[in-house]
Every structure is written in C-alpha cells, then in structure tokens.
C-alpha cells in the first residue's frame, strides 16, 4: 500500500510548484521548482504574475542556439569572407575590400548563372503555384480509388533526386521514351536534343523540378482546400456559377495564403537549384557550362579544394541571398497590393 499525501487545492494558476500541503515537508522536486520556476513578478497580475522575463528565452534557447550555429553564424561568416581572399583550404586570408564584388560585376559567367537562376524562378514559380492547386482540386473529392491517384502523384516526392535525374536522362535520351513516342506519332523526324541543347537541358531541368514538386505542394493545397467553406461553392452553384468561375472566385481566394507560401518556398528553391542541372547537364552544367545556375557557379569558383576562392564564392553567395530576399519581398509586396 502506497502512502498518499493530501495536497491542498491551489487556486492560483502556476502556484502548484511553489505551494506545499500543510504538515508535509517540501520534496526535493518542489524545492527545485521554487528555485527555478517563476514566482510572482512585482507589479504583475493575471497570467503574467508568475512569469519571469527570461522564461521565454529559456524555452526557446535550443532553437536559438541552432539558428545561431547553423544559420546566423554561417551567414555572417559568409558576409565576412566575401571581403577576403580566403581559400577553401584555409590559411591566412587577406582583406580585399570590395574587390570580389567588383570582379563579380564584370564576370560574364556570373551574369549567365544569374540569368539562368532568375529564368528558372520565373518559369517554375507560377507553374508550381498553379499546377499543384489544380491537382489538389482534382483529387480532393472522395471518389472510389482516389487514394491511388493521390499516392501516385506524391510518389515522385519520395524518390531521391539522383534516381529521378537518372530516370529523366533515360526518358530524354535521343533513343529514350519521349523521342521514341514523338517519332512514332510522326511529330518529329529526328530526335529532339533534350540532353545536348543548352536551352532544352535548362527547360528539361525545370520540368524535372515541377514533376518532383507537384505532389509535395498538392498536399499543402489539400490541407488549405479543407478550409474553403463548401457552402460558398453550393451557393455559387445555385446562382449558376460554373466550375471555372467557382475555381477563380471561391477556391483561389480561399487558398490565397497557401499560394503565397508555396510561391515563396518555390522561389527560394528555384534560385537554389543544383541537382537537376547536374543530373541532366553533368559536371560542366550543360555543354559549355551554359546551364549553370548560381549555386553551380558558387561550387565552381568558391568550393573547389584546389582552385577555389572562398572569398569570391562568398560574394556570389551574398548576391544569391540578396536576389532571393529581393524576389521574396517583391512577391509579398505585390500580394499585399493585390489584397488592398
């Protein structure tokens, strides 16, 4: 039989840790609680009565430490390095002022990579915002067998980028499935050079990104569509609104926040694209390096252990950050103006 203590009910929320029942010795746990947990703050009332100013910092400390170590520190380090001639192998780095940024402005390869990255974002972001939404609308209804289609659309998300890249190489080869179909349908006479023309490699890589991301963002939209009131659709339908009109005037406004989120995430992802280009254009980034994006270029000029210049690579990284931030802020502003 376990001896039980009678604990006096406590009326003040948060006071349990500090009150002990009369006639019982305070346990170690309670003593620890008194020392660590909040007591009443002078002048405070209500819920704030027992809250210490440092308590939120304590609970968020692990996240803050992670953010500082893996986010803020690398970022500040990158900014610092961009003003030096640091090498990936270490050693003494000299301060070079704005030299890296000046070099960047006159570097045609940098501008080519910037063009490719921006083009990637311009093509991929609108498609990635709209196509998964349309897909989500298609599979939203609970029809028999719909689970199969939802799983099928989501499957590419689970596959590794390398496996997907190899599959696309086989699909897009001169004697691959796509060219074979096009030839059999008498749409082409000779193979379309998907893997040897620099523009087609770039657009094929965009297709790969879209195909792999559709299922992922479809899940976002499926969750958002659940919040669109069905009554609105029913009322509009009774008023004679067709499918397209209801999609445009009810569904899209209803998932506006999700679209904004998808647009932002896709924009950031598009500017950071590397694997798709590497898989379809190999280590050179397409013939003549014409398909290199900014991350690809950073790898070439900044990270090579033998000939890399971490300072210059950092300067290009800072430019990529500024570009990403700029496009994100622009998108937010446009959305706000649209809402207003």
């Amino acid at each position: 039989m376990v001896a039980t203590e009678t604990v006096k009910p406590v009326s003040v929320p948060g006071a349990e840790g500090t009150a002990s029942a009369p006639g019982t010795a305070p346990s170690r746990l309670r003593r620890f609680g008194r020392a660590v947990l909040p007591g009443p703050a002078p002048g405070a009332n209500g819920a704030a009565l027992y809250r210490r100013w440092w308590l939120p910092w304590l609970w968020t400390a692990p996240a803050i430490v992670c953010a500082v170590v893996f986010g803020v520190f690398p970022f500040l380090n990158t900014v610092l390095l961009s003003f030096t001639d640091a090498k990936p192998l270490g050693g003494a780095a000299s301060f070079v002022g704005l030299d890296n940024y000046t070099r960047m402005l006159g570097d045609s390869d940098f501008w080519l990579a910037t063009r490719n990255s921006i083009l990637y974002a311009i093509v991929v972001v609108p498609l990635m915002v709209l196509l998964p939404l349309m897909l989500a609308v298609l599979v939203e209804k609970n029809l028999p067998g719909i689970g199969f289609f939802r799983s099928a659309f989501y499957t590419p998300v689970l596959a590794s980028s390398v496996v997907v890249g190899l599959s696309w190489q086989w699909l897009l080869a001169d004697d691959g499935l796509v060219n074979t179909w096009l030839e059999k349908a008498h749409l082409i006479r000779s193979a379309v050079p998907f893997l040897s023309d620099s523009w087609l490699i770039l657009f094929s890589a965009m297709g790969l990104t879209l195909w792999k991301g559709l299922g992922w963002y479809m899940i976002f939209y499926l969750a958002a569509l659940g919040n669109v009131p069905k009554e609105l659709h029913e009322a509009a339908q009774m008023d004679g609104a067709g499918t397209v009109r209801r999609f445009w005037h009810i569904t899209m406004p209803g998932v506006r926040q999700a679209m904004m989120l998808v647009g932002t995430l896709t924009g950031i992802g598009s500017l950071r694209v590397f694997t798709e280009i590497y898989m379809l254009g190999s280590s050179t980034g397409g013939p003549g390096g014409a398909d290199r994006t900014l991350p690809f270029y950073i790898r070439d000029v900044g990270l090579d252990p033998l000939t890399g210049n971490a300072g210059y690579g950092s300067a290009v990284s800072v430019a990529l950050f500024a570009l990403t931030l700029g496009l994100t802020l622009l998108a937010q502003r446009l959305t706000k103006e649209d809402e207003a």
């Binding site: 280590s283 050179t284 980034g285 013939p287 003549g288 390096g289 070439d300 000029v301 090579d304 252990p305 033998l306 000939t307 890399g308």
Partner: peptide, 13 residues
C-alpha cells in the same frame, strides 16, 4: 582541379 577540368571540358564541348 575539378573546376579547371570542367572549364576545359566546357570549351571542348
């Protein structure tokens, strides 16, 4: 270095 090799290969392509 891989970067130098890629730079040469790219021009040959």
């Amino acid at each position: 270095s891989p970067a130098v090799q890629n730079a040469i290969v790219a021009q040959v392509q």
